[in-house]
């Protein structure tokens, strides 16, 4: 039984679930790009970033992903946040916007805000990926991948094979996780301590997990290859497809919304638009 919730498909029939995976991927990439566009000043950066976070929260709700799931997946981000903050503070700067000083060492607002900006970006990306993975079956993901890669087929790129490998890898994730769990339990029963011990002991305990895991994975892949061959699989042969995705009005809406947001953010970025200045506020 795995406790990983991030990246797990949650069966539901929401608007986002029912979108075509190709359209959804396109929309997601549009939205992701907006996160990285530079705005004219800090206030605008955080305004856009904040609005975007609110928007993604709505997507999360729409895709029936629990907010708690999102918050849980943010937990590991704490270390990252502190780490980032330290790095940014240590980077020498030439700025007059000092937050506080420790002795002769100045801590600048720019450093703190830079770290915060990265954090907001990371949060947005995690939330986006969460929405995508919770609402898209792994197979639909690999279908989207195959579709986008299919033009490359003509220059000899094995897009079908890669998509097949990807979909099988996705299919076997739960199985392999179960293997991990089972092997760890078996080795723990033989006195392996996966939690404590020095570097040497850690290496040994990891080997006792990795070796059987690989042996089992190789065995599985060999048997799977036999089974696929017996079922007439030939990557080069003529195949039909059972899953055929159809574009619908939902996809159009999804793409339009994402593209509109992308357009707005790009426009604001290139024109150095400052909403605060419009209202006569001076911000940094």
């Amino acid at each position: 039984m795995s406790s990983t919730v991030l990246g797990r498909y949650v069966p539901y029939q929401s608007f986002i679930h029912r979108m075509d995976s190709r359209a959804k991927l396109f929309a997601m990439i549009c939205l992701m790009v907006t996160v990285f566009l530079k705005q004219v000043n800090w206030a605008m950066t955080f305004l856009v970033g904040g609005l975007f976070l609110v928007f993604i929260m709505m997507l999360l709700l729409l895709s029936h992903t629990k907010i708690t799931t999102f918050l849980k997946s943010l937990r590991t981000l704490w270390f990252m946040a502190i780490f980032l903050l330290i790095i940014y503070i240590l980077i020498p700067r030439t700025s007059d916007w000092i937050a506080f000083s420790i002795g002769t060492f100045n801590v600048y607002w720019d450093s703190i805000l830079d770290a915060a900006k990265i954090l907001v970006r990371l949060m947005s990306m995690i939330a986006l990926m969460l929405v995508f993975s919770a609402s898209t079956k792994p197979l639909e993901m690999s279908d989207a991948f195959e579709w986008y890669m299919s033009p490359l087929k003509y220059i000899g790129f094995p897009s079908h094979e890669l998509a097949m490998i990807l979909s099988i890898a996705l299919r076997f994730i739960p199985t392999i996780l179960e293997d991990v769990h089972r092997i760890m339990n078996a080795q723990a029963s033989r006195g392996v301590d996966f939690k404590h011990g020095g570097v040497k002991a850690k290496v040994r305990s990891v080997i006792s997990l990795i070796v059987p895991l690989f042996v089992s994975a190789f065995m599985r892949s060999e048997e799977l290859a036999d089974a696929m061959e017996c079922r007439g699989y030939d990557p080069k042969g003529k195949r039909t497809k059972y899953r055929i995705a159809h574009f619908s009005w939902r996809d159009l809406v999804g793409i339009l919304v994402a593209a509109a947001w992308l357009g707005l953010v790009i426009a604001s970025s290139v024109t150095h638009f400052d909403l605060f200045a419009v209202f006569g506020l001076e911000v940094r």
Partner: peptide, 30 residues
């Protein structure tokens, strides 16, 4: 765990050492 030995289903999946002798002596060594 020294006192309580557990043989899992399909225990052959826990083997990992290069020799049989090493694998069997793994638990007592631990």
């Amino acid at each position: 765990r020294k006192k309580v030995g557990l043989v899992f289903q399909f225990p052959e999946y826990q083997l990992f050492q290069e020799t049989v002798e090493k694998d069997v002596s793994f638990a007592p060594k631990n």
